[in-house]
């Protein structure tokens, strides 16, 4: 086969994927942008975008009613919960990934399966499961009262939302870090030890810097879906914590497609900027002692 036909074959075999990508990724994105910048008569407008930044409403912050920028407050709240969840995922996931990468092949397989099993279940069902656990009369409180401890009120609080998010996104933090750690050359750890580093130093000076690519992709994979999450906050937060994802859903359900698209578009731009920054961070050669 000569090179020309080879190239042709290559292009032909790629066609289904290109078509798929265009149809289901590019076109929808173009539509989102199109809706974001048009009004209901499909005339160009930036009103939807500016509404996101300017819309205000009354909020009771405990000291009385105050006028706030509705969507900016919602966005900051989403960001806060997402960041907290991501940090918790990282704090729990990093040590687990490390332990897994150093465990025997058998243990690694078992742990991997255990982490992935919840992912086989539907996301909504997992969230409902947490509702039954966390409710005031749920499994957790049932257990607490059975052992004569004080019951706790979790459902409808930020903690419940964070628990739900951490549970749902935890595998996305562990797996990328694990895959980087598993590839780490044991000889490097021995070399560090040989050169005078006790355990904590080996972690700080060798393992951590070399696992940063895994950490960055883990953080990206948890932070982004948890910023735009909407269902968890409705179910576990009793709808009290209106997040940016809820705002998009609300506008969409209210048939306010153009504004929903505008919020989605702004969120997308912010996330793209964040990802670009993280990529830059990851690509930079880390030369620190």
């Amino acid at each position: 086969m000569n090179r020309k036909t080879n190239a042709l074959v290559q292009r032909l075999t790629l066609t289904p994927y290109s078509v798929w990508a265009a149809l289901f990724i590019v076109v929808p994105l173009v539509f989102v942008a199109y809706y974001a910048f048009t009004d209901s008569a499909f005339h160009f407008t930036t009103e939807n975008i500016s509404r996101f930044f300017t819309a205000t409403s009354q909020l009771d912050d405990g000291t009385g009613m105050r006028e706030v920028h509705t969507y900016l407050v919602i966005f900051m709240r989403s960001l806060k919960l997402a960041v907290i969840s991501t940090v918790i995922c990282l704090l729990m996931g990093y040590p687990l990934a490390y332990i897994m990468a150093r465990a025997s092949d058998r243990t690694q397989k078992i742990l991997l399966t255990l982490i992935m099993i919840p992912m086989w279940m539907n996301f909504l069902i997992r969230t409902y499961a947490w509702m039954t656990i966390l409710q005031d009369t749920g499994i957790l409180n049932g257990f607490l009262s059975a052992v004569h401890l004080r019951t706790v009120h979790i459902i409808g609080t930020e903690s419940a939302v964070i628990i739900g998010m951490v549970y749902d996104y935890f595998p996305y933090m562990v797996l990328p870090i694990y895959s980087v750690m598993a590839k780490l050359d044991v000889k490097l750890l021995e070399a560090a030890s040989d050169l005078g580093c006790p355990g904590p130093s080996v972690l700080r000076r060798v393992i951590w810097p070399l696992s940063i690519p895994g950490v960055l992709s883990g953080v990206t994979m948890v932070l982004i879906p948890s910023i735009s999450t909407f269902y968890i906050s409705q179910k576990l937060g009793n709808g009290k914590f209106f997040l940016i994802g809820d705002a998009i859903e609300g506008q969409y359900v209210a048939n306010n497609l153009h504004f929903a698209a505008a919020i989605a578009f702004i969120l997308m731009v912010i996330l793209l900027v964040c990802m670009a920054l993280m990529q830059k961070l990851a690509n930079r050669k880390i030369i620190v002692a």
Partner: peptide, 13 residues
């Protein structure tokens, strides 16, 4: 101190 077979240099430094 040890010189390792495949050197084991720290790639991030």
């Amino acid at each position: 101190n040890t010189v390792f077979q495949r050197y084991a240099l720290f790639p991030h430094l």
